[in-house]
Design a protein around this nucleic acid. Sequence first.
DNA 1: TTGTACGCGTTATCAC
DNA 2: GTGATAACGCGTACAA
Lengths: 338, 338
Amino acid sequence: MKIKRDGKPTINDVARLSGVSKKTVSRVINRSPLLNEATREKVEAVIADLGYVPNPQARALALRRNFLIGLIHDNPNAQMVLGVQEGILSAIRETEFALVVRPVNRRSPTMREDVRAFLEQQRLYGVLILPPISENDDLAAVCDELGVSWVRMGSAQLDAEEHMVASNDREAVAKAVAYLVGRGHRRIGFVAGPEGFRSAAERALGYGDALASAAITADPAIMAEGNYTFESGHAAGEKLLATTPRPSAIFASNDEMAAGVLHAAREQGLSVPEDLSIVGFDDTAIAAHIWPPLTTVRWPIQAMARAAAIKLIDPAKARHEPSLFLSDLIERASVNDV
Amino acid sequence: MKIKRDGKPTINDVARLSGVSKKTVSRVINRSPLLNEATREKVEAVIADLGYVPNPQARALALRRNFLIGLIHDNPNAQMVLGVQEGILSAIRETEFALVVRPVNRRSPTMREDVRAFLEQQRLYGVLILPPISENDDLAAVCDELGVSWVRMGSAQLDAEEHMVASNDREAVAKAVAYLVGRGHRRIGFVAGPEGFRSAAERALGYGDALASAAITADPAIMAEGNYTFESGHAAGEKLLATTPRPSAIFASNDEMAAGVLHAAREQGLSVPEDLSIVGFDDTAIAAHIWPPLTTVRWPIQAMARAAAIKLIDPAKARHEPSLFLSDLIERASVNDV
DNA sequence: TTGTACGCGTTATCAC
DNA sequence: GTGATAACGCGTACAA
């Protein structure tokens, strides 16, 4: 009998040592139901003894599919990306899947081709696409073309359930603004996200919904558009705070912009929340660490990512996973009663 | 001639269509130098025509190594992890390598075994280990045992060059504290990181160096230990600000703790930087967004991660990459002259 | 400079 | 239930 000189034991070693064919070993590994219990135990003993671990490359070759799932994102914010990674990992832990990440540049003219080359080269099992780039239908098309399954996350239901995990941003924002109304605010400013972003549109709709429910007429003078950056929030804050009468509260479509509004308020000598209440969206690390700590809306990111990963790797189990998630309002210290 | 029914073209298809053996195609792919130019062009034309992409699983099997590099981390902070991912990606872009991520829990008793199982199962080409978990020598040992190459990032040179990319935290902190001295501060408090962390020790040494250079005697009363969290920084700030005379400046060993110190100061009615100057370390997102924006020290994370990845995949090229990086002091608004 | 034959470690087919 | 044997797609001796 030939002795393996180097490295790891293979299925052949296990077969030889346990006196069965390698197909039988394969059956043990893959938990085939038609298998003599005694044989199984014998083989399992040898596997444990040898410390045998199946080679995923060989498996991938034979099965014509690998066990890598990809995460494609355009760095919406670090906290979110990491949360998603944790969520995916919680779904694939204890499985043979691994997570490969691929940041892309939304503005690059070669973005589409980059992704295509990546998918073509790595032959991933499937990919999960994060917002904001998930709003780009091109990517889904590329995936379909290449035969890699995909699931995208987003701020509204864009696709059929098996392809989509969504948060209901519209409803979440409506609740947040209603919360301000409940605290007595009537003149509530709004800082929108950039045009072209679905999340921005959804959040704006939620704002409108809440005002309508409270029978408050929207005033364009206290609405401004930002691009999800701190600086744009700062500029929007300056604009809104210059209006008369001044808003008693401002909802910003993300935390960065809310922080910008906060700075603008401080520069004008206003106290938060005494003179101005502020609510943000996302619950990034910033929200908890600025002063005062920001009341904000939090996506259940990990749970969403987990659900998305399960959809990808286990469609049967995915039936029990929700596709639409509602965000929570995180109450901190940036809101006062009027 | 058999026609491939499904899916992607293989090396055999290319060989058949270009009228050469598959070995020749293989030579073209791997840029073998001994190859007739005409043959090469002919084959390349067919490759382009077919849109042929080599199957990485088959390659991995034949070569007995795959093209995945792993990132093992314990989520030091989201910004850093993402920066590292970007850095690695910039090194592997245009190569056949892909990045697989693996967050681990430093406190889990099974951490070591988790990592081992991961490495054993995925048979990675190599791994890159981030602080703080990179300070754990066990992981390097596991890698050696399993024959996966590794490089770790850290706050001081712990290993031979081929295994290490380090920032010189000691020197960086010394510079930051010297900067405070240069602004006229003599009574400078220090918030240390948790015991057992190499980075904490290095930063403490840097603080000591700077004081010694300025002939200032260290005063234990204005030194406290935190555990790199906001809350611990807050507690440390309360302690230091209760001393008499009160420090005119505080250096905190990371930004989270610096933010905590800032809150503590504010609660005592102190203005920053008028009454107290603060310097942090890391330049996380928080640093730029708190009020006032925090002067802090920034690791060149992306460059470091890029160098680490190059060490992993291309030892020859790695000779031209630095192994020791010096951090920059980012001046913002949290420091005043005394 | 190019081709033949075989191995890499696994799964699938189809007999027994 | 189990086992030969042939894929899977590529790289490497070794020969030509």
